[in-house]
Design a protein around this nucleic acid. Structure first.
Lengths: 129, 129
DNA sequence: GGAACGGTTTAGGCTACCCTAAAGCAAAAA
DNA sequence: TTTTTGCTTTAGGGTAGCCTAAACCGTTCC
């Protein structure tokens, strides 16, 4: 996904688990980039109105940022489940993170449908047999 | 996919349909970039040993380039079919182009399996009913 | 042969991202 | 209160990709 989306989703997840404000260091660790690169990207997120950044303290999602991150998170979850349950990919989280934001909402919607109607070849059947 | 892969696959497809050498102008039109950007990328492909570039004439794939492009093409076809036949995405070519090279070979392999065992909710069943 | 034309390449410049090193800040320790 | 410490930000620099405008090349046409 675009770098911006990746950072935004990361902030969202960290905010959910550890609360706000989220420090740039935490984001950097989580996303595997240098603190400097993270500060820079945080400033870009702020310029787009997705987060509020208080220097040396951390960031908080704006309403717009939270909304967008939430959608991203839903898409991520769907893709993740598809990779895990249908395709049985070991590293489904990484794979999902790579494609979320790359595929259109239409693809995500159709994947959701697929998850609701499990194929005869998927592991998702296990619970229905 | 990475830009390099996108250009490489495009060269491969154009070479298949119109033969070599492939002009940079053709590549530019096909990929939707300026001729200048295309020349630049062609030089990068050449630096990586994927194509031979004769200035003002065009490019020819090297053996390494053709091999890699061929794999890319197979992955693209698989993803394309999945998006078309299983997810029924209208713009499946564009969507597929966006994710090929982003997902791992493991995902492509598993998608192939899925295509061989169509789900009850997919259009792929039409031919089997 | 020479000029005009169309496609190609080079020049110069821009944004997005990333890094390391240095500077800055705030909170804890002395 | 001063110093130390740890995290954050800024400074400076690099690569990938893209663009427009200008220079360039080969071919075609006079």
């Amino acid at each position: 996904m675009s770098r911006v989306n990746h950072y935004l989703l990361t902030v969202y997840e960290l905010a959910e688990t550890a609360g706000e404000p989220v420090s740039t260091g935490r984001i950097a660790d989580s996303i595997g980039r240098s603190p400097a690169a993270t500060t820079e990207m945080v400033q870009r997120l702020e310029a787009r109105g997705l987060v509020d950044h208080e220097p040396y303290a951390g960031v908080r999602l704006t309403t717009a940022g939270r909304d967008r991150a939430s959608e991203l998170s839903d898409s991520y979850e769907t893709i993740c489940r598809f990779f895990d349950e249908v395709l049985e990919i070991d590293d489904h989280r990484r794979e999902a993170a790579a494609v979320v934001g790359t595929v259109s909402p239409a693809v995500v919607t159709r994947l959701e449908t697929t998850l609701l109607a499990p194929s005869s070849s998927s592991r998702a059947d296990e619970s229905t047999q």
